[in-house]
Amino acid sequence: MKTFGKIYTVLVFVLLYTPILLLMLFSFNSTKNTVHFTGFTLKWYEELFNNGALLQLLLNTLIIAVIASVVATVLGTMAAVGIHKMKKRMQSVILTVTNVPMTNPDIVTGVSLALLFVFIGGMMKNNNVLGFWTLLTAHITFGLPYVILSVLPKIRQMDRNLMDAALDLGCTPLKAFFKVMLPEIMPGVFTGLTMVFTLSLDDFVISYFVYGSGFSTLPIEIYNYTKKPIPPTIYALFTMLFLVILALMIVMNIFQARDERKKANKLAALQG
């Protein structure tokens, strides 16, 4: 039974990671052949870094992801603090409302946002609204619920008296938030931030409906490649993207592990 379990685990990992490993492998392949590994090369990476258009797209994607995740995190944290202060019934109503966009199919969100943007553009007599700002707004919008979802439990876990203690010792409510609440809920804020960042980085469906000709992102452009053979430069790009996200995940896990160890210590201290 034990060996079966081990085999099963290995199988799962093989299924999960083979495609990515294959992608990485072929990003170093000397020819465009996708069946045989014909020799090691770094030329696709070289080509990638010389491809101005592709790098511009990567930059666009990162700009959107960074701004959207930061703005969504700030707004979402503020919203979570506000929601926490509401009465129980109001809280569940608001939470349901904010959670719906997460379960909503992306395509619905995308189409409705596009409709809204065009509608507002029409009111402002602007036929060309779609572009950087609509893309950014869309990404902030779909990121917001994830931030609330990761921050709110942290606020709820916090000892209610901590904020009172801060006020009692002379903090204004705003100071109390920065000096006491923020350090306490930081792990949740960080989780929210990375979640929005990664979601924004690879979002295609929603972006597809709200991007304009002037400003586009990687996922949208790569979609165009699917109709013709994908050049290995894209493999190189994805390999790097994957590594970046992997690094992010590892950092996030370290944060969470540290947080949990802290909690375990606290529990032990209370019992001891």
Binding site: L162, A165, D168, G170
Partner: peptide, 20 residues
């Protein structure tokens, strides 16, 4: 008068020390 402007201080039931 809000708590931060009062000349009284409180010791809370479960200590409420700042964990960070």
């Amino acid at each position: 008068v809000p708590p931060h402007k009062r000349e009284v201080n409180t010791v809370f039931q479960r200590y409420a020390l700042f964990p960070h």
